[in-house]
Design a protein around this nucleic acid. Structure first.
Lengths: 235, 235
DNA sequence: TACTGTGGTGAACAGTTGTTCACTCACTTC
DNA sequence: GAAGTGAGTGAACAACTGTTCACCACAGTA
């Protein structure tokens, strides 16, 4: 790979009208659509590269190359690579939230709930590998803004789960402090499970049921623990 | 910083005898000592850089510069940067193991045990920040060999803890499968706690007691959970 | 004493990086 | 229809990268 022809679409100078698709009425693609299209291409290209790379190590040139766009184009959309990272965090947590929404709609009865929850997680990790890997990997990123954003989102996520838990019979008398603790441990288990799933999906798919079974047991251990727990008296 | 004078010690050509320290008897430093000295300098320099960098993004030139040595010298000790990473994994887990040894010697009575264990962890994280941060950050490194090594070590660590747990009264009738599960969750809590501690140490030292208290509560929740747990019948 | 092995050197290499620049030209607005 | 806006371009920049190379100085050995 040489400097020339770094991004395929520029090997030959292609007039804009040939590059952008046309609307049914035959008029040109609106500017705003064009803009958000390359923005998406940059985000998608970046997420793709991040499958085996760290955000810390993600080059602007790489990203633009993956998006089929000139290096300078990057600066029309983001100031620094960190900003792109922050958008990815947002998007990743949006899919995580959709998981919770799905799971909430899906709940039937107590014991089944654990199996269903884990199954929902497994499905989501399969469908959104890149997002889950990104969160897992960048959770302790040296890129401070991204690390902080992820932590904030996880904390938010845990408190949301806590309010959900508050409706369950055994724990509905607990002080919020204890509820948040339990929710936090459950979220921790979820994150950890998604990491294990990602490894297993890529390296030993036949061991996936094992991970699932184990996760169910852990989740059951955590929820069972509630009956033996004496909540803090004050607060 | 220019290409010239990249590593300070080579700005002027210094004859070996002036560079290396002398033994009491006045003879030159033995070769083997010299060798392991620069090796250490490379490892230390690397670990230092990894405080705000990913292994994925660690340059050979950076490392040699930090070690005060010429870039070419690197290849006398490691083939690739990954190999250096693997040595760091080994060393980091050596310190982790020493934590467990200390904690084992230190145990008195049941409830105190939790406080003591957490205190020991906190002390260790303070004393070996770089090692803990390295493990935390590279646990999901895109550098495969390092990621696998860390996972293997953590698993090993959990099984060691499981055999320790087996001596405790409540759980000593459990099948190993359940013991390992509990041990795994405890190790997970430890790793997670060390991550939180690292953040707190650098960003809000006054909130450290809060993290400690919270960790103690979680550990108590996990161990209390044992009394409510019905181990798997078969196996 | 002279010989040999080897850790470390500096120079050189081609390749890649982030960032800026003047420029084009399709879309939008007037 | 003319003018203005701004997303995208390609070329250029200095800086840095990993890796190889012949070479050097010295510890260990014979």
């Amino acid at each position: 790979m040489t400097l020339l022809g770094e991004h395929p679409s520029t090997l030959v100078v292609v007039p804009r009208t040939e590059r952008s698709s046309r609307r049914p009425d035959g008029s040109g693609t609106p500017r705003s659509v064009d803009k958000s299209r390359t923005r998406r291409a940059l985000l998608d290209g970046a997420l793709d590269l991040l499958a085996d790379r760290t955000l810390d190590n993600l080059g602007i040139r790489e990203v633009t190359r993956a998006a089929g766009v000139s290096p300078a184009a990057f600066y029309r959309h983001f100031e620094r690579i960190d900003d792109l990272g922050l958008v990815l965090v947002e998007e990743a947590f949006a899919t995580l939230r959709s998981l919770m929404r799905d799971a909430r709609d899906d709940v039937n009865e107590a014991d089944d709930m654990i199996k269903r929850s884990v199954a929902a997680l497994v499905r989501h990790v399969h469908d959104h590998r890149d997002h889950y890997r990104f969160i897992a990997r960048e959770q302790y990123s040296p890129v401070i803004s991204v690390r902080l954003a992820i932590r904030r989102e996880i904390r938010l996520f845990a408190t949301e789960l806590a309010t959900d838990l508050a409706r369950l019979p055994i724990v509905n008398t607990w002080p919020t402090e204890d509820l948040v603790m339990l929710a936090d441990m459950i979220v921790g288990l979820m994150v950890d499970t998604s990491k294990r799933l990602l490894d297993v999906i890529e390296e030993a798919p036949d061991r996936e049921p094992e991970v699932i079974r184990d996760t169910e047991r852990r989740l059951r251990y955590l929820t069972n623990g509630a009956v033996a727990w004496k909540p803090r008296p004050r607060s």
